[in-house]
């Protein structure tokens, strides 16, 4: 019935055993419980999609910021004589990327037609004013990211304190603060943003403000919910009983426990802000010329879309890529922080 051969056990082992301390300790500590963040990090590293997304985002970020110093052309220089040039990449001889474009069914070297010096390359072509699309794209990406990150940051500064205070105080204060949120969230975000943009002078700060205005509500809700949950846990109760000052308890004990939730929420707000900015610019109430953002670039491209589709595709591709990467990464983060979500 069993695999152990009784005879093979030496006689000397038949004495009462004194379990040593060390061994018991091993028994006790062996189910290694990694710390929460290390555990989450391990999980996220296993998620290929999230890792790839993170890398893509970092690359885009580095290139967008780096292009402040290394832009192939000046994004604002207009050279009308060079308008609507197709992409031309040195060393690449595929039609569509070598300065040739199809005109009435035949591939024509547009650069020659427009007398562009042979040493001048526009990697992604030029727009209707002869501006280099690649440079504008880099610049636009930078602006879009800047807007999104700033809006997300503002979200944090409004939403987190609001949620913390509401959740921590509880009772009447909480009820009132929640009612206020409810009323505000009854207004379609679209309407809020559009109105804000109509009133404030056009420009990047107004857009950031307008976007922050819609984003903080969700953040406040999420933070409040978590605060309510955490505040009744034993270590918080203990801190309260011991007479720790509320501010210290909130900042020292509750906030750190909220960090994962806040990070995840921020990772979802950023792409949303990118989308909204692009959306506003697309309908014409966002960024004004000569500023560029991914939204205005798409809009510009859309105007001449039938004839020069690449002017729209490149910015559309970049914005989609950023959005997808952010969403996948945020999903991955959420799954990693909250493993029970993924069975």
């Amino acid at each position: 019935m069993s695999k152990t051969n009784v005879q093979q056990v030496p006689d000397k082992y038949f004495t009462l055993s004194q379990q040593s301390e060390a061994e018991e300790n091993i028994q006790d500590t062996q189910p290694v419980s990694l710390s929460f963040y290390r555990d989450s990090w391990r999980r996220i590293k296993k998620n290929k999609g999230a890792v790839v997304s993170l890398i893509i985002l970092l690359i885009i970020l580095v290139i967008a910021v780096g292009s402040i110093w290394f832009s192939p052309h000046n994004p604002d220089t207009q050279q009308v004589q060079y308008s609507f040039l197709p992409p031309k990449i040195p060393g690449l001889h595929i039609n569509g990327f070598n300065g040739y474009a199809k005109q009435a069914g035949v591939w024509v070297d547009v650069y020659k037609e427009k007398d562009v010096p042979s040493s001048v390359y526009f990697y992604l072509g030029t727009d209707q004013f002869g501006r280099d699309l690649l440079s504008r794209l880099l610049y636009g990406t930078r602006i879009s990211l800047l807007i999104a990150f700033s809006a997300a940051f503002l979200d944090l500064t409004i939403g987190v304190p609001y949620g913390l205070i509401s959740g921590w105080l509880g009772g009447k204060a909480d009820t009132i603060m929640q009612r206020a949120l409810e009323i505000i969230s009854g207004v379609p975000t679209l309407v809020v943003v559009v109105l804000m943009l109509l009133i404030f002078p056009p420009g990047i700060p107004s857009i950031i403000m307008a976007l922050a205005l819609i984003g903080w509500i969700t953040m406040a809700r999420v933070v409040r919910g978590q605060t309510l949950q955490i505040k009744n846990q034993e270590f918080i109760l203990a801190a309260r009983v011991l007479g720790q000052r509320p501010v210290k308890t909130v900042l020292g004990h509750i906030l750190p426990n909220l960090s994962s939730v806040i990070i995840i929420q921020t990772m979802f707000t950023i792409p949303e802000a990118i989308f909204f900015e692009a959306f506003l610019s697309f309908i014409g109430v966002g960024m004004r010329a000569p500023n560029a953002s991914l939204g205005t670039l798409i809009n510009d491209g859309y105007q001449t879309f039938q004839f020069y589709p690449h002017l729209m595709w490149y910015p559309a591709l970049i914005i989609s890529l950023i959005m997808i990467a952010f969403n996948i990464f945020a999903d991955g983060l959420r799954d990693a922080f909250d493993p029970k979500m993924k069975g």
Partner: peptide
Amino acid sequence: YALEADRYYEPPY
């Protein structure tokens, strides 16, 4: 009531 044998060998039925 552990024996030294319990430590190294799986007891049979």
